[in-house]
Amino acid sequence: MSQPFTTIYTFYRDGFRSMTVGRTLWKIIFIKLFIMFVVLKLFFFPNFLKTNFQTDAQRADHVLDQIIRPAVQN
């Protein structure tokens, strides 16, 4: 590695190694990100329009149907 990249790498490596409270905080951050992106996002929060429609034209059509519903119902 060239000198600047080595310096930056060492800076981050040593920084992470010397953490005290930071270790606990990183654990919390990783657990939180796991819960958010692996559990919540995948199983509970699918993107409704991306999951149920293939193209943007279909998505637009669906939303348009939703917002003209009152006129159609009347």
Binding site: M36, F45, P46, F48, L49, R59, V63, I67
Partner: peptide, 18 residues
């Protein structure tokens, strides 16, 4: 705050599209 963005896509899909 990212959880709010999940909710936009799932619970508020008409709004987030618009």
């Amino acid at each position: 705050g990212i959880i709010l963005e999940f909710q936009f896509g799932t619970n508020w899909s008409n709004y987030s599209w618009m």
